[in-house]
């Protein structure tokens, strides 16, 4: 029996690795550039790799580099990091409904690996997400992020400009690739995505709030509005049936 459980976990792990490959590809140019910028900001290769190992959150790591360059204090850099990454709270809360029951220790470990990208891959998977699957997705993503951050610092150059730019589309293409199959199946998903996109565009381009808050607010607003609309629709339908 335990053999069976182990082989199921390992096949889930393999599925996770396969699903994580797009993230691995997408992180490659971003991590490489991060390593390069970290070098020009005066971080040593150890500090660069340590940051990718411990923080594992692209946007905030980039921001910290520009703040270091401005000579911003440590406390403000940490506070900014917190604000930029607060959106993961919402993602973890949503994902918590989808993962299978497991030991606290496993949850403590894999929760470290929740990024915009790992969240998107796991959340759009059909059915529940096994722990092995989460570990698979996260291990590819994390390795790519850490290794290529170090490599970027080491070689001290980014990719040729045209390749760098065209690879910049990778993560967005992945998000679209994850979203479209669900859009084809459900009108609700179409409305959710469009509303999320519109609110976030208004918030970020209108400079109403910092980027971290814009995504959280846009997501929550859209999710609540659509859910409320659905509840009202259901209620009306049942009222009609009673007539």
């Amino acid at each position: 029996m335990s053999d069976l459980a182990i082989s199921r976990e390992s096949s889930e792990y393999k599925k996770g690795i396969q699903a994580g490959i797009s993230i691995g590809i997408g992180y490659f140019p971003i991590a490489l550039t991060f390593g390069l910028l970290a070098k020009t900001s005066g971080l040593s290769i150890y500090e660069t790799v340590l940051m990718s190992l411990i923080v594992f959150a692209g946007a905030s790591q980039y921001i910290s580099l520009s703040l270091i360059a401005y000579g911003t204090g440590i406390f403000e850099i940490i506070l900014t990091t917190f604000i930029v990454n607060i959106r993961h709270f919402l993602m973890s809360t949503s994902l918590n409904e989808k993962v299978e029951e497991d030991h606290l220790l496993n949850k403590l470990i894999y929760s470290f690996g929740i990024t915009d990208e790992t969240f998107s891959v796991v959340a759009t998977k059909e059915g529940t997400a096994a722990t092995g699957y989460l570990f698979g997705v996260i291990s590819v993503s994390y390795s790519s992020w850490v290794v290529f951050s170090g490599l970027g610092h080491l070689i001290g150059a980014s990719l040729p400009k045209t390749l760098q730019e065209s690879m910049g589309v990778a993560l967005y293409a992945m998000f679209i690739g994850l979203l479209v199959p669900s859009m084809k199946k459900s009108v609700k998903v179409v409305f959710l995505a469009i509303l999320g996109a519109i609110f976030n565009s208004i918030f970020t381009m209108g400079h109403f709030m910092a980027q971290g808050w814009a995504i959280v607010t846009a997501t929550l607003l859209s999710a609540i509005i659509i859910e409320t609309a659905e509840v009202i629709k259901m209620r009306n339908r049942s009222v009609h049936h009673e007539d």
Binding site: F119, S120, I176, G196, I215, S222
Partner: peptide
Amino acid sequence: GVLKNVPYATLGALIFPAILFI
């Protein structure tokens, strides 16, 4: 229900407007 909606709204927000400025 709201939490189940979150992934799709997040994806919309992660894609736009950022993809326009790559």
